[in-house]
Each structure stands twice: as structure tokens, then as C-alpha cells.
């Protein structure tokens, strides 16, 4: 039974492998995400965050429990989701522009229309590249871009087809602090414009507090939600916001909460 929420994870457990070697990655995890909400998931390394992403998108099947996205139960990979990982996974044989147009070749109705309407789609892709500061770089190959630029292109590829659901698995993890914080703002701008439902996995509590409406803290493996907090700071948030006392307080509270839970 779907609830009113867009993503609904109910008492989900996930076991990798069988018999002796089996690993209980996620245990009895429940989580609800509203449509158009941006949530962040934080937790220690190996606690099952990436597994959670794969569960929601149907890339792995839950061992127990149920997951709904929209009003569909997730049993197979669901279609049209935008995904971005820590390494950009751009295709080196495609130009940056061709890379970010990949979803158009797979997701309907674009797949059907792109043959006829190529020029319009190219214009759309170029415009998106411009919003992340890659105006001149569409014709370049990924290896001709810096790491930060590749990650921008990666984000473009994840959002270009206006997915209803965007899954981000530490996409800013490998970047330097300046680029990372700049991309937070880029990400927020795109989200405010398109209002997709977003799930961000991160190790960075400031990043979580900056981007998310709600932050979930996951326990060490096997992963469960042990704490959840709403970030009631109006948008658009700026880098200035991150120095305001209430932002700093939220981050502190999160950090305290996590260290408490981890030491118990």
C-alpha cells in the first residue's frame, strides 16, 4: 500500500551473499520522503548508504520489506532516475555534450523525439552546461576537463531529463573545498528550479545541512535510521548562511548526535 509519500521504504533489510559469507548491510530500515523534498543521508562508512540508493532505484532487490516509489512497488530497476556517483563515470569516447545528452537517448518521450528534434535538445543541453559554468566545454572530451568540471558535467547528466527522482551518492566527495561549496549552490539552484525529489548521500554534515530539507542519520552496519532532523532554514541558502549561528547549531547538533549514537 503506497502512503501519500513519493518514496516509501518500509522495514527493509538487505543481505548480500549467502550462508557463511553473507553480510547484513541494511536492517529494518524505514524512511519516507515527500514529493519534491530534498533529503540527505549521513552515516559512517560501510553502513549501507550506497546500498540504500540501490534499493530505492531497484538496482538491488530488498531481502525483506517493501519499497514504493510513486505508487509503484520497486521490484526491478525503475526508469528515468537521475544518478550521480563519487567518480563521474562519464564516457571517455563521448564529448561532454554527448555525455550529458545520454539520458535523452534512453528515457521516453525524449528517446522518441530526439531524432526529429535534435537541435532543440542540443540547445537544452548547452543551456544546462552554461548554468554550471561549462559553456565553452561541450565539445571537449571528459579527459580534457578538470575533476571538478567532470563532476559538474556528471550532475548535468543526472538532471537533464528532469527526473522525478535524483539520487546522489557522494558526488562532491572527491572535490576540493572551494569547488564543493560552489557546486552546493549550483545543485540548490537546479533543485529550486526543477523541484525534483532528491536523495543525497554524504559524509559532510555541512553539505547535508546546506542542501537538505531533512537529514537522516544511519547507524553503523547493519544500517537503520537512528536520527532525523528537519533543516528549517529558508532558501536559497548561501555560503553566508553556513556561518550563521542557527546553521552552525544544526551542524553541531547533528555531529553530537552521531558521536553519541556511535559511542553507545
Amino acid at each position: 500500500m503506497p502512503t501519500g509519500n513519493f518514496v516509501s521504504i518500509r522495514n527493509v533489510s538487505l543481505i548480500y551473499g549467502e550462508g557463511e559469507d553473507s553480510i547484513l548491510a541494511v536492517q529494518d530500515l524505514s524512511l519516507e520522503i515527500e514529493k519534491g523534498e530534498f533529503v540527505a543521508v549521513v552515516g559512517p562508512s560501510g553502513c549501507g548508504k550506497s546500498s540504500l540508493m540501490k534499493l530505492v532505484t531497484g538496482l538491488v532487490r530488498a531481502t525483506r520489506g517493501e519499497i514504493y516509489v510513486g505508487d509503484q512497488r520497486v521490484l526491478d530497476p525503475i526508469r528515468g532516475v537521475g544518478m550521480a556517483f563519487q567518480n563521474p563515470t562519464l564516457m571517455p569516447w563521448r564529448t561532454t555534450l554527448a555525455n550529458i545528452m545520454l539520458p535523452f537517448e534512453i528515457v521516453q518521450p525524449h528517446k522518441r523525439l530526439i531524432g526529429r528534434d535534435r537541435a532543440r535538445y542540443v540547445a537544452q543541453a548547452e543551456q544546462l552546461l552554461a548554468t554550471v559554468g561549462l559553456r565553452q566545454f561541450g565539445g571537449k572530451f571528459p579527459w580534457e576537463l578538470s575533476g571538478g568540471m567532470q563532476q559538474r558535467a556528471n550532475l548535468c547528466r543526472a538532471v537533464i531529463h528532469q527526473p522525478e527522482l535524483l539520487m546522489l551518492d557522494e558526488p562532491f566527495g572527491a572535490l576540493d573545498a572551494f569547488t564543493r561549496e560552489e557546486l552546493w549552490s549550483v545543485m540548490q539552484r537546479v533543485w529550486i528550479e526543477k523541484r525534483f525529489t532528491g536523495v543525497l548521500v554524504t559524509h559532510d554534515l555541512r553539505e547535508a545541512a546546506f542542501l537538505a530539507d531533512r537529514v537522516f542519520v544511519i547507524s553503523p552496519r547493519p544500517g537503520r535510521v537512528i536520527y532525523e532532523t528537519r533543516i528549517d532554514i529558508p532558501r536559497p541558502r548561501t555560503l553566508q548562511t553556513t556561518f550563521e549561528p542557527r546553521f552552525v547549531d544544526i551542524v553541531h547538533a547533528l555531529r553530537e548526535r552521531i558521536s553519541q549514537e556511535l559511542t553507545v
Binding site: K54, T57, G58, L59, P77, I78, R79, G80, V81, G82, M83, F85, N87, T89, M91, L102, P103, E105, I106, V107, Q108, R157, H161, M167
Partner: peptide, 19 residues
């Protein structure tokens, strides 16, 4: 990860093979 990106976009085996 590249395969996951394609699968979550809804690509079938043939599309993953060719793309």
C-alpha cells in the same frame, strides 16, 4: 557505476551493450 547509471535510466540490455 556506468552500468548502474544506464540501468536506472531504464536502459535495456541491448542499449547497455550498444552505448
Amino acid at each position: 557505476e556506468m552500468r548502474d547509471v544506464l540501468r536506472s535510466l531504464g536502459a535495456n540490455r541491448w542499449e547497455i551493450l550498444t552505448k
